[in-house]
Design a protein around this nucleic acid. Structure first.
Lengths: 229, 229
DNA sequence: TGCCAGGATATTGGATACAATTTATCACCC
DNA sequence: GGGTGATAAATTGTATCCAATATCCTGGCA
């Protein structure tokens, strides 16, 4: 019996275009956790997952270990894994990491950004303007940020940055699920892009730090209120 | 037959004080990779590792997956895993990440540092002064940095920071193995500690950024020279 | 001589069955 | 009521088998 209806649909839709079964399971589970298809705290029972994916337990265990290393699952020895919990403290943690990584990525990338990159960022802003679907919005936002960082030439840094953008997005979806989705103004993104076009690295870094910091602050306020009451 | 003599000794000495076999294998392998006991590029054959550790292949596979997620091993489907290679590009990457994370960790931690913390940092500097063993030196250096960041109250940020301190240390050991060990002056550490004692966050962050940046630059120069010739 | 095809080989990837270990629960007795 | 031991359920680990695939090597061919 499938533990989770949403996950089953995700598995059915998913293209197993991966090199190994373990990677397929890991990618699908990761998406399910990040998009909120599986709620925080949900037990990830090996047997159930194996059945849902139609595979044996071995690739499932490998996938769970990888999710643990990415802080998307928590292991309790001999009790099993659960989807990572959401907390105000962890949200602030992710925010702090973003505020550290993203200005660095932007500063390294900015001098190498091409006109095509900047135009693509502009298009992404236009798409975000008036986007009604929070999931699509998160993806566009992520792509906008990553477009600006893409030329940093630092694969590790970019991977870490994207990983924490995704983690932040998970938190945002969680907030939207509770409070409803209210699209944000694109003014901050536009100002950031303008600074990039002008080649003003200091100003761009300042803006991105402020932008990320504000988002983290809003989120933390919501989460703390939720934990208090 | 054991693939690696050094690893066998590490396994023999290691206390399996871990919750599960997979975690024991992972921790031991991670230490072996980080300390250079297993050289970059070494194949990590499942069967051999299982025999060396005296366990079956499953916990070994779980351990390898975790090492992959930490960028300490590289997977090639149906060819197996190898110890992560060392390159100038990756060294610069790690340096950039440290330069992003450590000032953030320090800024968050500094206001909460206690007199005991600062005294312990001072002791660590004294120990480093004249330390002849590069391995011990790396550990002391890491503990010095982490002591200053410890009060940040951001577990994720600190874990990431320590992870990349360890990665940088691996590179440093590699350099020492090639060029011989030459102890560095503790002046930069002392200046950093002084700024922390004075509660001067801006100066402390500036110093730590400079300190990390210089270390990364030296390392990159060595690695680029090595790759060129 | 150079090169491509195809098979041999070794290793990983995955499935399955079973034993061991640990945790949590819950009745039971003092 | 609280501690205690049996019990159930889950993960963890082992052993073994087979499949898939990358690499290597050899032989045929231009």
């Amino acid at each position: 019996m499938a533990v989770n209806e949403g996950l089953s649909r995700l598995v059915a839709r998913a293209q197993p275009r991966h090199r190994t079964t373990a990677e397929f399971v890991e990618a699908t589970l990761r998406e399910a956790i990040l998009t909120g298809v599986i709620a925080p705290g949900t037990p990830l029972r090996q047997e159930d997952l194996a059945e849902t994916f139609g595979v044996s337990r071995m690739p499932v265990r490998e996938a769970l270990r990888q999710l643990e290393a990415r802080a998307l699952a928590e292991f309790h020895p001999h009790r099993g894994a659960v989807v990572a919990e959401i907390s105000a403290a962890d949200g602030a943690d992710i925010g702090a990491i973003r505020m550290a990584l993203e200005p660095m990525a932007l500063r390294l990338s900015l001098p190498a950004l091409t006109a095509a990159d900047l135009d693509q960022a502009e298009e992404l802003i236009a798409e975000m303007d008036g986007e009604a679907d929070p999931g699509r919005m998160g993806e566009l936002n992520r792509r906008f940020h990553m477009t600006l960082y893409a030329r940093a030439g630092r694969p590790r840094l970019l991977a870490l940055t994207e990983q924490h953008l995704l983690a932040a997005d998970r938190y945002l979806r969680f907030q939207f699920a509770a409070l409803g989705y209210r699209p944000r103004s694109q003014d901050e993104h536009r100002a950031l892009l303008a600074a990039c076009r002008a080649g003003d690295a200091d100003e761009a870094c300042r803006l991105v730090t402020e932008h990320v910091g504000q988002a983290a602050e809003q989120l933390t306020a919501f989460l703390e209120g939720r934990e208090a009451g």
